[in-house]
Design a protein around this nucleic acid. Structure first.
Lengths: 344, 344
DNA sequence: GTGAAAGCGCTAACAC
DNA sequence: GTGTTAGCGCTTTCAC
C-alpha cells in the first residue's frame, strides 16, 4: 500500500548531553536525576527542566549493566489462554507496572521438556526474579532449585512444587472443595462423586482432600469408584461423567476439579437425558465465565485469580527489594457460588 | 554483607574470565561465541567447551548497551483475559520465543488515558519494537506516530488505527461478516438484524459493511432500526437484542459483532421465550470456546487469532532485522462455522 | 556540592 | 587469526 520511509531515528539524549549543555559533570546530572541529596536544588531544577524538555529517557541497559539488574520479572506458566491464567497475569501485570517492573512471558505449553528448555533460555535473559506455575510432574523441579541457588528469587503460584523451599501463593483449595461438597450435602445430595485432575498435582490433592473431608464430617462413606482421575479438559470431564453413569450405584452429584470438567460432565449428562440439578447435581471450581453461560448455570467455587496474581507479584518484588527475605506461603480464600446446577 | 539464609549468588562468569583462563583476548572469546568466522576452529572449540562448563551466560544488558537494542518486543493491548487476545498472545509468544525475543506486556484496560501513560512509560523501557491493538477512539493516535518517528517499528493488529502509516495485520472482517449473513440468508432467514460494536472502530465498520454488502447482493433492503451500536460485552448483546424485540417489525435473525454479544442476545431471547434458530437465528463472530458450550450451540465466524499473533510478530521481527522495511498490510481469512443457532 | 575517573560486560574498529 | 583499544550510558568511589 505504501513504500519504505526511512526512520531517521535521532540519537537519544543522554546525561552527557545534558551535562554538556548545562556545563556540569555527568555525575551531577546522574545524581540530580536520581534525587540523591547531595546536589543543590538550584542545579537540580535546571537539570530536571532540561531533561524534560529534551525528553530524556534513561538507558535501562546502562543502568542494568552497572547495577546488575534488569527490572524484569519472568512469568513461567503452562498456558495463557484460559480464564484463570489470563486473569492471574492481569493481576501480576497491574502490580509489576505500578512498581516499574516489566514482565516477560514464557509459556511451557504444559510440557515438562518445554519447561526445561524455557528455564535454560531464561537464564540468558537476565530476569531479576520469577513467578511460576509449574508443569504437571512435580517430581523433577531441580532446575528451579538451581535458579534459586543462583540468586534468582522465585515465587510459585497455583501449581506449586512440594519439594522446594520458596515462597508460594495458592488458593485455599481444601476449603473451597470442602464448601462445595458441603453445599451439595446440604442441598440433599447423598451420593457425591468427584472427577479429579491428575493425581500428582498438589492442588488436585487438596481438592480431593476437601471432598473427602466434607464427606467424612457429614458421615458419608467414600466410594473409590466415584473418584475418577484424569486431565483438566472439557473432554476429560465428559468422559469421566460417562464413566460415572456406568457405575453400579450411580451418584446423584458430581464435584468437578474445575469448571471445564464440570462443563464437560454437564454435556455428557445432557446426552444421556439426565436432568442436571434434579437428577444429578454438578458443581465446579474456578468460576470461569462460561459457567454462567451454560444452561443450567453452573454452581462453582470462585478462585481469587486476580488476587493470586497481585499477591505473588507483590511478594516477589519484596524479595527483589531486600535480598534476604524470609520465605512466605500465602493461601487465599475461595468463594462458593451457587447457581442452578445444584438446585433440585 | 550477607546474613541468614544467604543466596551466595556466585559472580556470573564473563568472557573476561574465559579469556584469562584460556590465555586469549576477550575479543577472541566474543568472536568465537558469536560464530564470527575469523577465529580458528581450534580455539573456538576450546572456548565453547569452557563456556559450557562454566555455564557462561551473555549479559544482555552489556550486549544491548553496545548494540543499542534490547531484544524485547512490547505488546500493548486492552485486555488479556478474553479468548481472542490471550490466543493472539500465545501466537506472538511462540514466534518471539523462537527468535530469541522477549515479550513484555502492557495492558491498557481499554482506557485511552491509560494507553497514553503506558506509551509514555514504554519509551523508558527500551523495547525494540511494538505490537499493538489500540483503544477505542482511533482519532488520537499521535503518540504512536511519535514512537514510529523515534525509530521504533510498530505492527498494529486487530484494532488498527486508520490514520497511521504502519504495518497492520487483521482478519478479513468484511468477508467474515459477509459469509455469516449469506449463510443466514441461504438458511431462509429474511429479516436480518445486526448488533454492532462501537461506530468508530475499523473492524466494526468492516463487519457492518460485510453485513450490508451481503444484504444488498441478495436484494434485501437495509433497515436502519435493525442495526444497533453498542459495546462488546455480553450485557450489551443482551440489551441490544431486547431492543430488537421491541421493533415494529421484529427481525428473524441476528448477526452479532462478536460471540459475547451473540451469547448475550441468546440469553435475552431465551428470557423472552423465543426459540433460537427456529424463530430467530443467531450468529456471532470470534469462535469463543463458550460458543460450543451454550445451548443451542452458536454459529459463528472463526477468527484466526493464533495466526494473527504469529503473523504480526513475524512481521515485526522482519522490520527489526533490517531497519527500512516496506510497510505491509496482511489480511487473514475467517472461517464460517455452522452450529445449531442458525438451524430452523 | 561538584568533578574526574574507573568500570559494569560486551562489541567493533583497527592494528599486526 | 588474534590482540589492543575505545567506547556504549550510567553509577560510584574518591578527591577537592
Amino acid at each position: 500500500m505504501s513504500s519504505g520511509k526511512t526512520n531517521k531515528s535521532p540519537r537519544p539524549v543522554t546525561i552527557k548531553d545534558i551535562a554538556r549543555m548545562l556545563n556540569v559533570s555527568v555525575a551531577t546530572v546522574s545524581r540530580a536525576l536520581r534525587n540523591t541529596h547531595d546536589v543543590s536544588s538550584d542545579t537540580q531544577k535546571k537539570i530536571f527542566a532540561l531533561a524534560n524538555e529534551l525528553h530524556y529517557r534513561p538507558n535501562l541497559n546502562a543502568t542494568g549493566l552497572v547495577k546488575g539488574t534488569s527490572n524484569t520479572i519472568g512469568i513461567v506458566l503452562p498456558y495463557i489462554n484460559n480464564y484463570y491464567f489470563s486473569t492471574v497475569i492481569t493481576g501480576i501485570q497491574e502490580i509489576a507496572y505500578r512498581h516499574k517492573y516489566n514482565i516477560i512471558l514464557f509459556l511451557t505449553d504444559d510440557s515438562p521438556e518445554k519447561e526445561l528448555s524455557v528455564i535454560g533460555d531464561l537464564m540468558n535473559t537476565g530476569v531479576d526474579g520469577l513467578l511460576v506455575s509449574v508443569c504437571s510432574p512435580p517430581g523433577s523441579c531441580q532446575h528451579y532449585q538451581q535458579l534459586i541457588d543462583h540468586g534468582i528469587p522465585i515465587v510459585f503460584f497455583d501449581r506449586v512444587p512440594g519439594n522446594i523451599e520458596a515462597s508460594k501463593v495458592m488458593q485455599d483449595d481444601y476449603n473451597g472443595a470442602f464448601k462445595a461438597v458441603e453445599h451439595l450435602i446440604k442441598s440433599g445430595y447423598t451420593k457425591i462423586a468427584h472427577i479429579a485432575g491428575p493425581k500428582e498435582l498438589h492442588f488436585t490433592q487438596q481438592r480431593l482432600l476437601g471432598y473427602s473431608g466434607a464427606l467424612k464430617k457429614y458421615g458419608f462413606d467414600i466410594q473409590p469408584d466415584w473418584i475418577i482421575y484424569s486431565g483438566f479438559s472439557q473432554k476429560d470431564g465428559e468422559e469421566d461423567a460417562a464413566k460415572l453413569l456406568q457405575c453400579k450405584k450411580t451418584p446423584d452429584a458430581i464435584f468437578a476439579a474445575n469448571d471445564r470438567k464440570a462443563l464437560g460432565a454437564m454435556i455428557a449428562l445432557k446426552k444421556n437425558n439426565v436432568a442436571i440439578g434434579k437428577d444429578i447435581g454438578v458443581i465446579g471450581f474456578t468460576n470461569d465465565p462460561a459457567s454462567e453461560i451454560i444452561s443450567p448455570t453452573l454452581s462453582t467455587v470462585a478462585e481469587p485469580a486476580l488476587e493470586i496474581g497481585k499477591t505473588s507479584c507483590t511478594l516477589l518484588i519484596k524479595h527483589l527489594r531486600k535480598k534476604h527475605t524470609v520465605i512466605e506461603e500465602t493461601i487465599l480464600p475461595c468463594e462458593l457460588i451457587i447457581r442452578e446446577s445444584t438446585r433440585r
